[in-house]
Design a protein around this nucleic acid. Sequence first.
DNA 1: GAGTTTGAAACT
DNA 2: CAGTTTCAAACTC
Length: 817
Amino acid sequence: MNSPESNRVAATSSPSSSNKSPPVQESPFSNFLSNLSPIKSVKAVRYTQRFLESNFPTPPPVFTSPRIDLQRETGLLERNNIDEEDSNIREQCNTQLNVAKIPSLEKEVQSCSPSGSVDEYLADIVEVDCTHSAHKQLQLANEVSQMLQGGFTDPKKTIRKVDTVDNRSSREARTLTSSDQAEQNLPLTSLNLVDDLVDLRNDESFNVFLKITSEDVNDIVDPDVNLNPALGAQQHAAQIDEAFEDSDDSSRALPKEFVKEANNHQRGIRRHLHFEAALACKSVATGDTTNSRASLTNLKSLGLSHIESRATSSSGKAVNYAQSRASKSSFSPFEVVRSTQNSRNPVILSPIPSGMGLNLNSTVRSVSLGTDMFASKNLTRYRNSQDKVVRERSNDSAEDPNSNSISAVAGTMYSYADIDQQESQAGVAASSDTYPINSLNPPCDSPLAQTEQQIIPCEGRISTPQNADSVEELNQESSNKKRKRPSNTSESHGCKRCNCKRSKCLKLYCECFAAGVYCVDSCACVNCFNKPEYEDTVLDIRQQIESRNPLAFAPKVVKHDTDSPAIIMEAGNRNTPSSARHKRGCNCKKSKCLKKYCECYQANVGCSDGCRCEGCQNSFGTSSECRRVENPSHEVSGKDGSMEQFSPKWQGLADIRSLAHCSGALMFASSNIRDCSKVSQTKLQRGSSIQPQAGSLQWNYSPVILTPQLCDSKGSHELTSDSALCDIMEDEDMPEILKDTSTPLKAVKASSPNQKQVMPPHYRSDSQRSSSPHGMRSVRKFILQTMPPFPPLTPYSNSKGRVNRKEYDQKDNIGNH
DNA sequence: GAGTTTGAAACT
DNA sequence: CAGTTTCAAACTC
């Protein structure tokens, strides 16, 4: 093999310990994984410790030693904050028992946050959340559960360590970690541990443990449910639903739909999460802990809620708090997770399900989140699920959206997750469906899929009821689609299913890999290494690819930023996102950009000057008058000189977006960004009532069409605000990386920074907003996520660019009028 | 379902 | 950086 990965593997020669080899392949990768296993071990140890600490306020004194030893063994020094976290956990354990303090605690955490800017921005959200302590309480419990769940990625070695310390603790730790069935498949050295875990499931003590974890919550979760791998997702949902009904806390009672939806959703998200977690771990392994805040930013860009940001910004206090709350949580995360782990699907089950998209790939990797990152992820997941539930509930009650935002139920999601790979796949599709959009092209399939996944993963999980329905349909269908790529259906359902034969799904040829998701069982790929078991390999390959092209995993389609709420509103009926453009542009020769060979066409975006296509007849984006203004000649004869005046903007925008993704970590480092977020938030709120719809592009960098309204006074107003934002962002603290206009195409020549400044809060699921008043809040989160993408292209972020922008708008107005 | 076409990705 | 090869999706029959 000449492939990079093969070379790498060769370089790292260690005896293959893999008991689980890829379908056909033997295992150079196993060796690779084995070499990387220490990283996992460290991570697992840490989380195990956390778990123990949270459930046992006085952790075994010996416990720290193994960890330290492990660190030494692995040579990982990224644990600088472990002690800090430990102290935080202990400290919080003493105070967290009081549920009433939860809201205040979070606030406190915020105040303590070094980041300041972001935290401040989030503060208002917290306040809202605090008003609903009941939901919050449940939320925290779920968060803890999820965190615990996600934290134990590689329990095997960790458990070993723990066993030596404390049998009881280790036992419990196992329970937690055993949740991942996938682990059994991992080519890790401590395989025997897996067996123990399996046995543990049937062990009485295990049930006891589960019971203990759930006692505080009135035994909401039935251990049997969780332990029964055969249970279908609906069964789990039903059982959990019963649990809720039984719960004394009315706030915990959730509609079954919520649970089911959450379940489906979770499964869908799972694929995405793998990478995230892996990336986080990878970052940790690299020892880059200098910019946890930036990492947090990345997470946010992936859809993290403000909770996460709080947690991370506060040096993981929030997380620790959540963990400490684990014992108190109404839902035992472990239980839930365990049920998932018992599922048949070894591959899909991810120790660290995360709701984030892959954009972490580029961003997270560069900046290690360390422990905080995982915690943040978990929190994010949890919160998203909560949002989802809340939203559904709000449909019935139409109450304050914000208040619901934190209601806790999310934790239940995991109990349903991953009955098997098929379901998992369906879940992915579901998650995709949940993405904003009325997908003409479901997120996962179109080139946008990548973008969507990267940006909205978490958001997408907040699915609307109809999404849940579609999810169920997908689940049913998925079983029949396995190993067969459904013609035109995979895309329609927003689920990526590759068919790779020779790339091992470790190249961008693979849609799954390119989209930053793991392949699922329904994929027809051969010798696939794009699976959680090989996350190290995947991450390594990804790094290699990114080393060649930092934007390789950036969204291929970027949206034009002029979409203010008003614009979005106006553009709601459009399905030809003229405002979106392909990052690099296509290079079509024969398809005339009228077939899906063309990435622009596939993404439902119009070609731009960045494209090098011949005989372009791309109809996307040309239907709108603005599009014609933008490129009068493009529609008929393809690109020509006439586009020049506008095309650079698009390209520049795209590039900026991409850069933002790659350097998203840097975003939050700047306090200015916070300001921008605020502004954007304002905009968003104004447009929160928008009914979006239309094409798949709407979400994410959704291609908002430049409608006449876009150009009118409203648009101008927005632009003005944007300009202000631009000024702010330009002036200070802009990381060089963001300033760097270099892109593969280097197309950002004269693009106006203003274009980018406008936050597109709407790429979030429009359906979500339309269906729920929560949309506003969601948008807010999204803003936090996406604000980073507006780095000023230094040379061009000047006033001139703004002028150009205005001119552009004026043209649009003229063209429309 | 097999074969062809196509263009992105990877390679040289 | 351009040309070539590889690859897998899209498409056709």
